[in-house]
Design a protein around this nucleic acid. Structure first.
Lengths: 201, 201
DNA sequence: ATAGTTTTTCAACTTTCGTTGAAAAGGGGA
DNA sequence: TCCCCTTTTCAACGAAAGTTGAAAAACTAT
């Protein structure tokens, strides 16, 4: 009944291998940052969720900031996403773009974009990453491929619509959009987004 | 040169009257919450900005939470705003709505909505206030007056566009939207917003 | 096998923040 | 004038969080 190690979940030093602490930490960090934002998430909670000690964050990532940057490195390949969006009729690019975001977000509990949105609060670095992600990684390439003019303005406009949708649906959780079917959302928003991409401004 | 009270900025007890601590605290709180969000703002910084002791926050508002709620009580009258938006051609309601938000925000450094947006992070109360403000105070009444059907969906859709604009322009500060003229923004976005209000979904 | 390196936990430190209680000072009514 | 209430600062407390250093355990190479 009274095993000597019974009360201590983990013995001291290195663990039997196989369990990748770094990856576990990244997963836990993504979840916590998404749920609570940069300030709300604590190193201790992330470590506990990953089942390791909080000191591991410093060992592997140098600190909370490093972990945040590493965790927000998007797990999905932006080029592949962009490629899929551009594949087909340019007049339906908005619909494909919207469906892509919705499915990434819904399988992800809000996704990295939501984590960033929640973190932009007091972290200038998050705003920086957001800018780069929005204009550089996703909307920039798409707009360049399908839009006739005013590329930067169109990219920013797409940002307002997509980010606004993310905020309302996942952060504020305003009904009926928060629980609406993908088809409903797409039917309502895709035409507007399409105008930002290829319509006359 | 060496006044006995020279090193102490304020003597102890009550001050000569005339200076309204409560109001100063509210102003400072609005500024700090807007710039840094609920978590980023500290009671001490707010008090220093107001030129009073941090304990005054507890004395007047019961704590940081009470101060936040009090500070977010919107200084602009929503009914008046709604009335102005509804006054005129319903087909141009979106333009008036957009211009109203832009001017409130731009004279306000982002405004209460931005403060709330920055605070939604780890404060469920902020999300609650946001929901009520969006659907109850502004978009709800406007939509009820001009929209033909699906009132709640239309209100939420307007929320995505307006909140997204606020996030991109004031929080993320993505160019060229961040520094664009009001006319440019209105020309680009009003048609889309008008579709959410009165168009066919 | 043994020495050295890497990984891991533990305990403690430091800082920051919200909050509290007591004391001081001005104002107002009896 | 004297007493009481309100307002204000001050000092300190307690909790929480990011970080650090040392010791222990497992792996690796010689």
């Amino acid at each position: 009944m009274a095993d000597k190690r019974g009360s201590r979940p983990h013995p001291r030093g290195r663990r039997p291998a196989g369990e990748n602490t770094r990856a576990a930490l990244l997963d836990a960090a993504r979840a916590e940052f998404t749920e609570r934002g940069f300030d709300g998430a604590t190193v201790r909670a992330i470590a506990q969720r990953a089942g390791v000690d909080a000191a591991m964050v410093n060992h592997w990532f140098g600190g909370k900031d490093g972990l945040f940057v590493a965790a927000m490195e998007i797990p999905v390949n932006p080029e592949e996403i962009v490629h899929r969006i551009l594949d087909g009729d340019p007049q339906q690019a908005a619909e494909r773009l919207l469906r892509t975001f919705l499915s990434v977000w819904d399988t992800n509990g809000g996704g990295a974009l939501t984590a960033l949105a929640r973190s932009v609060a007091s972290h200038e670095q998050a705003a920086q990453m957001m800018r780069e992600f929005l204009s550089g990684m996703v909307f920039g390439p798409v707009v360049s491929a399908v839009a006739p003019d005013q590329l930067e303005l169109r990219a920013a406009l797409c940002g307002t619509q997509v980010l606004g949708l993310g905020m309302i649906r996942y952060v504020i959780r305003l009904e009926p959009l928060a629980s609406a079917e993908h088809n409903t959302v797409v039917a309502a928003i895709a035409p507007n987004l399409q105008r930002y991409l290829t319509g006359v401004l």
